[in-house]
Amino acid sequence: MSEKSYRDAIRDAMMEEMDRDPNVLIMGEDIGVYEGTFRITAGMLKKYGGKRVIDTPIAEAGMVGTAVGMAMLGLRPIVEMMTMNFAIVAADQILNHAAKVRYFSGGQVDVPVVIRGPQGAGVQLSAQHSQTFESFYAHFPGIKVVAPATPADAKGLLKTSIRGRDPVIFLESAALYGMKGEVPDDPNFTVPFGVSRVAREGSDVTIVSYSRMLQMSLIAAEKLSQDEGIECEVIDLRTLRPLDLEPAYASVTKTHRCVVVQEQWKPFGAAAEIAASITETVFDELDAPVARVTGEDVPMPYARNLELLATPHEQHVIAAVKKVMYANG
């Protein structure tokens, strides 16, 4: 084990896989000479050269489509999006091509492409640079959607993404890049997809989340424990597709109350899918309707006071937990 930042864990995962498999390469905007907007790819051009660390023009559809074509031939391209907000420009290549070509060809090609980059709000980047995309991508069959909450998971899940045979949308929380945590050093360490984990044990309320909201939920759970004596069990989904809700069902069977936390808009979001699945599957166990904590239904504003109002915080989770316990006075 070593203490690593979420950022370094992502870089380590890529470099270990590039060392392991000559078919792995990375492409994106300003990843080579510039060394990455968030410094994720620092040192990689020097180590691997321009054939495996490919600077592209600002042409998201072209670069993603090119990566999909390469993946169909057996290469394993990683596409770094400067931010996931820009990947929408390549949505046709991701959703109409990468996600579907295996199926519409009757299983003739693998598409081992990883599209990764930062997402999320918090540093006043306003409407076009603050979005989260898990609900958007997880709607479509054919792609896998990953949203790690810790440095260890960032590394282990990214290595699984790179080694896989399917297109992966790998969503990094920009706000977590500096977060540190223990990460296994074993180059064969991976984290499988579709295996949720219990991040905190508790008996009163189940909180289900992922990525940065998982970390926020853990803080809320500690406050609830200290201030109210309420013990929350916190489930980290890790991947949205495939989605493993078994630990959530088991937890709700124990707690009978559930809160789902996501960063962005409530309508048609990941929290809605999770809450509906819980209601469908363990309805008889519930002592209260499943509550959702989400961002406000607005494009992200610039002004700090407005941005704070538009994003979920610990007090929203605490209020939702109290609500499902009918403990709001």
């Binding site: 072209g62 489509g65 169909m72 031939l73 046709d92 060809s105 090609v109």
Partner: peptide, 30 residues
């Protein structure tokens, strides 16, 4: 579609096959 014939579709989005073709060409070149 027939990968055995290196015939990669059959793509139903206008222009959508072009970046894929560039990627296939790049893979061969690399």
């Amino acid at each position: 579609f027939s990968a055995a014939h290196r015939f990669y579709g059959g793509n139903a989005i206008v222009g959508g096959g072009l970046p894929l073709a560039a990627g296939i060409a790049l893979a061969d070149k690399l």
